[in-house]
Design a protein around this nucleic acid. Structure first.
Length: 235
DNA sequence: TACTGATCATTC
DNA sequence: GAATGATCAGTA
């Protein structure tokens, strides 16, 4: 699939995928469907990237670089709600002093996201799972503020060298969790007195409750309108 | 059953 | 080695 030239081409391509099965998409792309995702955890995401012409590869930039749009597949449980957290990007553990939210990778990636829901019921064979309607989303001012506050709290802990305190329970919407080959992997970091130390690599993740909010606001128009209205300054 | 910490595959 | 794509699986 060629990279979309603009947002409309991307949305057309995404709309064309709605209702199709992963087996269908894989066949078109000439890709074999894995029996399960245990040893192919990124397979669905990569299939959708291929189907929509994403270009970023493994660089820390949005998938559709020219459009500034990030592609995220979102696994749905049997009730068709998001069932997993969403990886955003690697968390920096060194040289974090002076980092600003405005220049952060998190902000760049979440500024505009194409969410593509995909059925993820374990009982259903991977090939039979269907793609849902894609949503082109940007954070509301209220969401932006919370994401920024979360990010700044995490970065401050890292900058102060309190890595031991980094914990998935911190952060309202944005959390930090291990992002590694295994628990033995290490990367460079600094402790609270500025000495070089080794630490498990971390990543930023969006909590499941956050993606549930995002999707439900789109599937329930009145709720979405209410959310927008609530942000309008009263006068 | 929801959530956190652990893990798997691939690319550059 | 570090970035991407995530889901798995044990436990609270």
């Amino acid at each position: 699939m060629k990279p979309p030239a603009d947002e409309f081409q991307l949305m057309d391509a995404a709309a064309e995928l709605a209702g199709r099965s992963l087996g269908d998409l894989a066949q078109r792309a000439g890709i074999t469907v894995p029996g399960d995702l245990k040893h192919a955890k990124g397979w669905v995401g990569e299939l959708l990237e291929s189907a929509l012409g994403a270009t970023a590869g493994s660089r820390p930039v949005p998938d559709f670089e020219n459009l500034g749009i990030e592609l995220k597949t979102i696994p749905l449980n049997p009730r068709h709600q998001p069932q997993e957290s969403t990886f955003v990007c690697t968390a920096p553990l060194i040289n974090t002093a002076g980092l600003q939210w405005e220049n952060s990778t998190v902000k760049a990636k979440l500024n505009r996201v194409l969410w593509v829901p995909v059925e993820a019921t374990h009982d259903v064979p991977v090939a039979q799972r269907r793609v849902g309607r894609a949503i082109l989303w940007s954070p509301s001012p209220a969401e932006r503020k919370i994401l920024r506050d979360d990010w700044e709290e995490h970065i401050e802990r890292i900058t102060l060298g309190y890595l031991d305190e980094l914990d998935a329970r911190l952060g309202t919407y944005l959390q930090i969790r291990p992002k590694a080959l295994n628990s033995r992997q290490r990367t460079n970091a600094r402790n609270h007195i500025g000495e070089p130390v080794s630490a498990v690599p971390r990543g930023f993740y969006l909590r499941t409750c956050f993606t549930r909010r995002v999707l439900s606001s789109f599937s329930n128009p009145s709720r979405n309108i209410a959310a927008v209205a609530a942000q309008r300054p009263t006068k």
